[in-house]
């Protein structure tokens, strides 16, 4: 129990909002196992409204699983996940869909619909919600594509005809097209050249500012983490072991986080390599 409280205070540091402000996203004691493998082992996390959180962690540490739990794509075994103070795990399907309507997600591998042209991908949510007609969707798509640095003509291609980096940008365009309240970015800049990476980072910051959105990003790139994040949190062995200002990454004084941020081989994290 003491442990829980400590974790909670630790995580609360992530949210700069006062103790009385309801965090946009609040996770408490979230656990998830796949078979014998305990991936999340009591995750506690707060994200204040309008803030941008970066989640760090080794490959396979459960970062993607964490945000899929918030999105409702994976059902956690235990724990509380609140959005705007309401527990999503207890909601009816309809309520949950209403919450999901206001959330945008960029999947790690893009997850573009390869049977649809790019413009339809980008405007998919707007079309599904009836916020744009099919006739106008093409122009709307061109507009959003321009925001991620792609020409409008890309809209007529199919996702299979794009390079990996272009797919990522289209996926980003799709995630922000419906102007969501909360946006999740799962490794938004992986596979992009450094300049494009910086551009995407700028775009994410811009979106969060302009839309007033709350953002949760996963990244392995420290430069990117410092640019995107107000705060950062480190996921290790199924728990949030540290959270604090993103600007301090690399010299936080937390041995584990510093090793991770500086990419040192020696430290508390031992890579399990055999032979």
């Amino acid at each position: 129990m003491r442990d829980m409280v400590e974790q909670a205070t630790l995580a609360a540091g992530a949210a700069h909002g006062g103790p009385q402000a309801v965090p946009k996203i609040r996770m408490r004691g979230v656990r998830k196992a796949f078979g014998p493998k305990q991936v999340l082992d009591g995750v506690d996390l707060d994200v204040a409204a309008g803030h941008s959180l970066v989640i760090l962690g080794g490959s396979g540490s459960g970062k993607s699983v964490t945000i899929k739990c918030v999105l409702g794509l994976i059902e956690p075994d235990e724990g509380v996940i609140e959005i705007d103070g309401r527990d999503v795990t207890q909601m009816s399907r309809r309520e949950r869909e209403a919450v999901a309507d206001r959330i945008g997600m960029l999947f790690q591998n893009g997850a573009l619909f390869d049977s649809l042209p790019v413009w339809e991908n980008v405007c998919f949510k707007l079309l599904a919600q009836g916020r744009v007609t099919r006739a106008k969707a093409r122009d709307k798509a061109a507009e959003v594509l321009a925001q991620v640095g792609l020409a409008g003509s890309v809209g007529d291609l199919s996702p299979a005809e794009l390079s990996g980096g272009m797919q990522k940008r289209v996926a980003l365009a799709r995630a922000i097209a419906a102007q969501p309240d909360i946006i999740f970015f799962d490794e938004p800049t992986t596979g992009l050249d450094p300049i494009m990476g910086a551009v995407i980072d700028g775009l994410i910051v811009d979106c969060v500012k302009r839309l007033g959105a709350t953002a949760v990003s996963i990244t392995h790139d420290m430069a990117s983490a410092r640019r995107i994040g107000d705060t950062a949190a480190m996921l290790h062995k199924g728990r949030i072991v540290w959270s604090g200002p993103a600007a301090s990454l690399g010299h936080t004084g937390h041995a584990l986080v510093d090793q991770f941020a500086n990419g040192e081989r020696e430290g508390p994290i031992q890579m399990e390599l055999r032979r």
Partner: peptide, 21 residues
């Protein structure tokens, strides 16, 4: 094959996040 590919490439999850059942 079509739906299976959509499943393993997260496209089905993506549908859910795009207001589509």
């Amino acid at each position: 094959a079509e739906i299976g590919t959509m499943r393993v490439t997260d496209q089905i999850d993506a549908l859910t996040t795009l207001s589509t059942n």
